Simulated assay, not measured.
Amino acid sequence: MKNCFNYLHLQDLIVQKGDLMKTKYVVLLALGLLLLVCSRDTTKLEKGTPEYEFAQKISEKVPYFNPDQNNVVATSKDFRVTTGEVLKNIFSNMGKGVTRFYSLDSLKLKEVLKNSAKEYSDKKLLLVAAEKAKIELPPAKFDSIMQMQYRRHGSREKFVEILTKNGVGIEFVEQQIKESVIIEQFLNQVLSERVKPTEEEILQAYNSDKTATVRHILMQTQGKSESEKAAIHNKMEGILKRAQSGEDFAKLAMEFSEDPGSKTKGGLYENFGRGDMVKPFDEAAFSVPVGEISDIVETTYGYHILKVESRSKETRPLDEVRPELEQKFEQTKRRDVYFQYLEELQKETQFKLTEF
């Protein structure tokens, strides 16, 4: 009932004159009206709206997102998230771009919707936690952030014009920016101590390899079905055997790699720092012995095979590089700490995603 009209408004509905029975009756009537208003599902999409039509098309392939059912996709002690909320958020965020969803097959669409539901629910979880921690965004700071956005696009009018052309409303964008800043402030407050490195961690980072040079072969799996990914993995196994048997790795990369950034250079990436690459790739680059070839490594891009060419350590004095090490350590650790904290928050609030 927290989001319904103020309970004190009931006083305006109570008859102050008349007998006791009449007053009791009116009070009960008022309470009934209150329950009726509060029980109405405000997240359900209204028929005849563009969001409802979008949901109807989506539900043809993923029935769980039927707008008339408005099924639950996540729950916690503080809130629940419905399919209507998720689809409305997608529609408001993408505007005319939602037509891209219509060409997806049912399996891919279901995967996209699951990810969208999780992202939206995680965000709501953090916003509720930020509200409890009394995190607020001063109007002056928000105005400053928006003015920066307007200047970046020429003016507020031009910014609104760009959004309108894409079917996105300025009110939605402003709300998204506001919520993102509030979450950032909240996480900075909660995670600041957790990401600070200890002296032992600083020394370990200083004495570890600083950069790596590798060659790699990538075969992309983004947007592929499970059967397609299995076929790609089998192909990569064949390439790995050829590399392990002594074939020229650079030539194999030029022949098979699908990475446009390194294919013509024989798969070469030179002197990149620890943490610069996606985590599985980074871990292989800094753990596989120099001169050796990795097993097949999977990232969000696809399947990789790495050959480590060389690694180098820091040559500057520790005191000189300490601030840099601290900053990089915090940036690297922040992602892990964030997911750890999110998991703690989910357990604390009994957060649960619905399988559909």
Rank of each mutant, 00 (worst) to 15 (best):
L353M: 13
E348G: 05
I135L: 06
L34D: 02
V112Y: 14
V337T: 12
E298K: 06
G95D: 04
E348W: 04
Q16V: 01
K210Q: 13
K132M: 15
L126T: 09
R152V: 10
N93R: 14
N115L: 04
Q56R: 15
T23K: 15
M146D: 06
V112M: 09
E200P: 06
T264A: 11
G32Y: 07
E53C: 03
G261V: 02
T83F: 07
Q175R: 15
T264G: 00
C4Q: 06
L10Y: 00
I177N: 02
P50K: 09
R215I: 01
K22N: 03
A129I: 02
K352I: 06
G154F: 04
N234I: 05
K57M: 14
L318F: 08
F286K: 10
E226K: 05
I182F: 12
T264S: 08
T83C: 09
S262N: 00
P317N: 09
R322D: 08
L342W: 03
L127I: 09
E46S: 12
T332C: 08
P289E: 07
V160N: 08
M148Q: 14
N115V: 02
E46H: 12
I145G: 07
S121W: 05
S59R: 09
F286D: 05
K22H: 07
S116Q: 10
L306D: 02
V214S: 10
E314F: 09
E161T: 03
G154Y: 05
N89S: 07
K123S: 10
G32S: 08
D122P: 04
A133C: 04
I162M: 13
